[in-house]
Amino acid sequence: MTLLKLKRLRTCFPTRDGLVKAVNTVDLEIGANEILGLIGETGCGKSILGMSIMRLLQPSTRIEGEIIYKGQDLLKLSEAEMRKIRGKEIAMILQNPATALNPVLTVGDQIAEAIWLHQTMTKREAREKAIEVLRSVKIPSPEKMANECPHKFSGGMKERAMIAIGLACNPALIIADEPTRGLDASTKEQIIKLMKEVTEEKSMLFITHDLDAAAEICDTVAVMYAGELVECAKTGDLFGKPLHPYTMGLLDSLPCRGLKPIRGMSPSLIDYPSGCRFHPRCDYASAICEKKHPEMVKVEDRHYVRCFMYL
């Protein structure tokens, strides 16, 4: 059963240097209880994709296509209707918890305000619920910590608090943007474990450039390059048998596989290379790759790739 479906999603925003085509063009599906990983280098448009779903981008941003959530197109909703979706239906865990929590409000209040907003209950009940949520993300002595401001929280605890804000109203879908970024190895391990636990009956879009984290938590993984998906498969298939040269390059750059970086730089999102956007960096590129833009093809059951080698 599909919970969220992106149809030909395009997100562009004007800058001084030109129109940035951050997402161009993405088709994607997240099923109920599915954890979908979205991986790719910094600046490939994956965070913008997450923000597009929440419609949290600057007013000058143009979002085209369809974002079908539970049968309704989110792009057709009014701002007021969209506010009822945010936090309640789809929650977002933003990257960088050090700055994403308000420094002058208590963590308890920052969780409770979302609960109080979306559910009919008194402020006191919302507060108790907030403490409960803090307990569920394993914050020690949650009654006490709910009354503290974020500066009393360690990095890992701040991340837990961010997850708690996301979980507060029991949303069906969570969009987590780099939740493991900047955490040390053991804290990262704990956060991944926690996220796995709390999303047991939820769907999640897990945006990351941490391949290990993605391999550990995701059911399906989509690889994004220069604003579009280049490969999408079940986690085991993608990591066991990568098809796209870019995915292979990403895997080869892991420390356990020899730390071999992909040559060249990721392209600007203002001017894509012609044809296949990856061809200037690709070891397998042939004449056609420079001229024609490849379509996504189904190679195996639930394994899609955008490359002329498989056409």
Partner: peptide
């Protein structure tokens, strides 16, 4: 960022 967090809550 925390203003964005607040928006993401639907406030």
């Amino acid at each position: 960022d925390y203003i964005l967090t607040a928006r993401a809550k639907g406030l």
